[in-house]
């Protein structure tokens, strides 16, 4: 096997070497893993360094792209004055209240519509007609009705979250294998137990997918809502920085939003693992 390859060009020899060491030779893979991890840590750092360098040499316009060091010092200033915490907590409270206000009715109506074809037939057209309206487009109407206070923020988030949780819950229940409902019926499950022991857990994987989507939409809506009618919040911080031309503070707001998004997705991952053990175990197996 190896005889025809000896004496070939370098490239061929190294190919042969990989083929020989790869199976069972763990060292090769670990080195690859470490290299990948280092690369994924260092490449953003390198980009930041390059950014800093370009700003300092005047190649990048500092009015639009302030130096990372400048952003960091603004960040510390906002943290130590307590201002950043106020904005962040205001946004998180709005997100949480609005999310619960939207997800709860979305989940309940979704379960009912999922199990009852009659109710589904009656309500579906209205959902289909109102769902495509961009939620940002009705923000002015919501502010007209609920004023500039907290309630208008809760409501706009609640509406965005409601639709996504509702639609995913309906799909989750409708897609439950019919045999499970037969089992419930045959073993004497009450109406209440049909919801709690079959519809809800059976739909949970899809409900969770809806919750994920809804959270993303909630982040989008909170920023938009805080742009126009708020005196606190991350959206307000970004918008106000634009008005006062404090670009560094604007970048701080953007970074905070992205961290908020990232951390919440980690929390949702963990929550999914706890709430849907039959699914996550399956994935890890």
């Amino acid at each position: 096997m190896s005889t025809p390859l000896t004496g070939k060009a370098d490239g061929m020899e190294s190919q042969l070497e990989i083929a020989v060491t790869a199976p069972g030779a763990k060292g090769f893979h670990i080195r690859g893993d470490v290299a990948e991890r280092l690369l994924s840590v260092f490449s953003p750092l390198l980009l930041l360094l390059l950014w800093e360098f370009l700003v300092r040499t005047g190649l990048l316009d500092a009015r639009f792209f302030p130096a990372p060091t400048g952003i960091v010092s603004t960040f510390w200033a906002l943290v130590s004055s307590g201002e950043l915490f106020n904005h962040l907590s205001a946004s998180i409270v709005r997100l949480a209240v609005g999310f619960v206000m939207g997800a709860t009715p979305g989940l309940m109506l979704g379960l009912i519509m999922g199990l009852s074809p009659m109710i589904r037939a009656a309500i579906s057209p209205m959902i289909a007609a109102t769902y495509p309206i961009p939620k940002i487009a009705i923000l002015p109407l919501i502010m007209l009705i609920f004023g500039l206070g907290e309630m208008s923020k809760y409501v706009v988030i609640a509406i965005g979250v409601f639709f996504l949780v509702l639609i995913n819950t309906i799909a989750g229940v409708v897609n439950i294998e019919k045999i499970y409902l037969d089992v419930g019926k045959n073993f004497g499950a009450s109406r209440k137990n049909m919801y709690f022991t079959i519809a809800f857990p059976g739909a949970l994987p899809l409900i969770f997918a809806g919750v994920r989507l809804a959270w993303g939409v909630a982040l989008l809506l909170i920023v938009a809502a805080e742009f126009v009618g708020a005196k606190t919040g991350i959206g307000y911080l970004i918008w106000q920085s634009w008005q006062t031309f404090s670009v560094e503070a604007m970048y701080v707001g953007l970074v905070i939003i992205s961290i908020l998004g990232y951390v919440s997705s980690l929390i949702l991952d963990e929550l999914e693992r706890i709430l849907i053990p039959w699914k996550s175990l399956h994935l890890s197996a």
Binding site: I179, Y180, D182, T197, G202, I276
Partner: peptide, 9 residues
């Protein structure tokens, strides 16, 4: 029942 009637959850 026939197969797959055991609740996965």
């Amino acid at each position: 029942f026939q197969e797959q009637s055991v609740f996965p959850w």
